[in-house]
Every structure is written in structure tokens, then in C-alpha cells.
Amino acid sequence: MTQSIEVRASLVSALILVTFLLVWHLAVTGGGSGQAMDPEYAKLMGITATQGKSAMPGPLDVGATLWGHIKDPFYVRGTNDVGLGLQLGHSIMRVMAGYLLAMAVAIPVGFLIGMSPLMSRALDPFIQVLKPISPLAWMPLALYTIKDSGTSAIFVIFICSIWPMLINTAFGVANVRKEWINVARTLEVGPLRKAFTVILPAAAPTIVTGMRISIGIAWLVIVAAEMLVGGTGIGYFVWNEWNNLSITNVITAILVIGFVGMLLDQGLARLGRFVTFPE
């Protein structure tokens, strides 16, 4: 009972993991029932039918595959056989490109909306209509106009990550405490200096929260977008391995997607702690 709550929580986490892996392992280990089958038919059907082995891989299979990918992440053995690291790299590059573009648009426009009640009201109907559109709905339009699948994926990331950043920036800027603005006004601080020395630091925690929501959405959307556009990327990898009926690789990719998503989120959480000020 003297142990801290962190230690106890990690013990429980480990217990849940072990239980889950054990149940998983037992569930996919089937008994052999492949007797009395024409050998030629059995060959066609594969071990799934002949030995009664489940098509669902066990944790050991996934672990082995994952280890294989980690050992050799950057190989290229043909257009459809590219290392997981390279596929992830493609996805991360696309997410970063779309996300940074969205930042470059959303933060200045958010500032404008937050500072100007007129622009806030004028742009509100557009934002209200555009925000709820599923980013993938833009895909055909993007493919038609941009004519390049990679760039279209970047556009889809751009369009889905822009809204949380835009709305949070506008909200953060509009709600900077009046007294801080008044301090800047009584000190005759110019508009640009005021924006950078008072409004930006005051709104930064809200803006970073928006950025954190955006990166989460962008990482969700990239998988789906890459399934559509194909070629490269972790989303394409998942779809390709599904076509190969390699469930092991699919599960491995799912784990890796979750892990990378967590890293992206943690990075922005760290940035959030950096810009948050105690009051």
C-alpha cells in the first residue's frame, strides 16, 4: 500500500496486457482437423483449412513480423514491397506538409477572426458549412483539380487539420483578457508588437490545444486517404496487405499507426506545457 499510484497503475496495465495477449494466443491456436482431405485440395486451401490453423495470427506471429519490420524498416524490393519505415515516412511527410500548410493559413486567419468582430461574423457561415464536411469528400475534387494523388492526399490533410486550429486560434485571440490588452494600450504598444508580445502568448495555450486536435485528426485521415490514393504510405500498406491477406502485417501496421499517433500527440502535449503559464 506504500507504493505510489503510478507504480500500481503500471502493474495493472501490465496485467491487462498479459491477459489480453494470453487470451489472444489461446483463441487463435486451433486444434488440428485437416485429416481426410484430398492432398491436392489441401494444397489449394493452405494451412488454414488443412491444419485448422486460424487465419488470424497470434501475438507471437505479430511480434515476429513487427521485429522483422523494426530490424529492416527501409528496404525496397519492388513497388509493392517497401519497408514499413519508408511507408511511415511517406505518411508522416504528407501529414506534416498538409498540417504545416494548414497552420500557415489557420493561425493568421484565426488571428484576424479573433481580432475583428466584423470578420468573425462575415466568415462564420463559411466555417460552419465547411467544418463538418468529411475530409475524404474533398478527395474526388482534389484529384480532379490537382491531378496528382500525392498532392491530393496532402490537400485532404490540409483541409481536415485547418478547422480546429482556426477555431481555437480565433477563440483564444478573442478571449485574451481585457486587462492585458489594456496594459498594452496604456503602454502605447504598436499593433504588431501587441500581437506578438501579448495576444500570442495569451492565446498560445488555446492555439496549441487546437494544433493537438488537428494533428490527431490528420493522422486519422491520412490512413483513409492513402487507402484511396494508393502508391505509398502506411494507409496504402494496410490496404495492400489486406489484398495480400496478410492479417499479421495488417495488425502490425495498426499497432505502428497507434504508436506514431501517440508520439505526435505527446509532442504537441509537450509544446502545450511549454506555452502554458500558471496563474
Binding site: 483578457r177 486587462e179 492585458w180 489594456n182 496594459v183 494600450r185 496604456t186 503602454l187 502605447e188 508580445t197 501579448v198 502568448p201 495569451a202 503559464f277 500558471p278 496563474e279
Partner: peptide
């Protein structure tokens, strides 16, 4: 409009919380 010739001491002190005490004065 406001002027640096007229300094205000606010009821709620209105310090910028992301700056130190010295930083707040230095800003002025």
C-alpha cells in the same frame, strides 16, 4: 487615446503571467 505619460495601476494588478516580475516591468 492612451499615452505613456499617464500610467495606470490596475485594481487586478494585470500582470502578464508569462513574464517574470522583472520582465513585466521591463516590458513597460
Amino acid at each position: 487615446g492612451p499615452s505613456l505619460d499617464r500610467a495606470v495601476i490596475f485594481q487586478s494588478h494585470a500582470l502578464l503571467p508569462w513574464k517574470t516580475a522583472l520582465g513585466n516591468v521591463a516590458y513597460a
